[in-house]
């Protein structure tokens, strides 16, 4: 009996680690192939199998990709967009969720449903009509315009904040009000700090989405010499550079690096944040 259990336990351990190893391998292989390819010289790339290790550490592809796709500008733009979008979506989302959750006023249900329903709208199909609106507002070819658009089409953060508010007891604000605090005060001084886990969740979901957004950035930030972002810098490689995979791979890896660094530094918060968003469905 115990021997059987022991065997079972060992077998389970083997299966467990084997499956973990296999899955990690699957997750990593496409990216590793990129690293291998990016490190090869063009000649080497042409002559060897794609999975064959490079002979030397050739960094020329990275340099060329970085320069030709204008990635320094791209990084700065992406950074600005990311910071502002995160700041605004957190503020707008939390503010809206606050009033939707804490006050009852005529039209509350309507506003709430408007937001929930908006998540069903087919964004890509509406790009043309959105384009005209952006144009009429003079927001094309401008980073602020792009930022406004990203905040304007932001539904997730509101939903997450609403969920979170439902778990914050009402008594908190009420006692503060009794103490003479204004509603603005309650929100900024008492509730906002308590929302930290939800803020992290929103920042992760919105952050990943914003950093990687390419469809709208390509459409609205047309002057690519000035307004390129990390994601759209990769478009450079669909054009004249065609399928020169060692350059493309280098470009992909460069755009990946900032995300990877943030991920490694904030692993714990990221997991916790994502989990916080999931607890209540």
């Amino acid at each position: 009996m115990t021997a059987k259990m022991k065997i079972g336990k060992i077998a389970w351990t083997i299966i467990k680690y084997a499956s973990l190893l296999l899955m990690s391998f699957i997750a990593v292989v496409p990216v590793v192939s990129c690293v291998i390819t990016a490190l090869k010289t063009p000649e080497e790339y042409a002559q060897t199998n794609v999975m064959e290790m490079p002979q030397t550490f050739y960094l020329g592809n990275f340099k060329e990709a970085f320069v030709s796709a204008n990635m320094l500008t791209a990084f700065m733009n992406s950074l600005i967009v990311l910071v502002v979008v995160l700041l605004l979506s957190v503020m707008f989302g939390a503010m809206l969720a606050y009033i939707l959750n804490r006050f009852s006023f005529p039209g509350r249900g309507l506003v709430r449903n408007l937001f929930l329903f908006a998540s069903l709208l087919p964004g890509i199909a509406m790009q043309v009509t959105t384009y005209k609106i952006m144009y009429n507002l003079g927001l094309i070819n401008s980073i602020p315009g792009y930022i406004i658009l990203l905040c304007g089409t932001d539904i997730i953060s509101v939903t997450i904040f609403i969920q979170f508010f439902e778990n914050l007891p009402n008594s908190l604000d009420e006692s503060a009000i009794m103490d003479g605090c204004t509603y603005f005060g309650v929100f900024f001084k008492i509730l906002l700090p308590l929302l930290k886990p939800a803020i992290v969740t929103v920042m992760i979901l919105k952050g990943v989405g914003t950093y990687n957004e390419y469809y709208m950035a390509n459409l609205y930030l047309q002057d690519k010499s000035r307004l390129v972002t990390m994601a759209t810098s990769l478009y450079k490689f669909t054009g004249p550079l065609g399928n020169q995979y060692n350059l493309i791979c280098a470009g992909v890896l460069i755009t990946l690096t900032p995300a990877l660094i943030v991920f490694i530094l904030c692993q714990k918060q990221i997991y916790a944040g994502l989990a916080a968003g999931s607890v209540k469905g």
Partner: peptide, 9 residues
């Protein structure tokens, strides 16, 4: 593709 959208403005 892009030019079609851009010409709307």
């Amino acid at each position: 593709e892009d030019i079609k959208i851009r010409l709307t403005t």
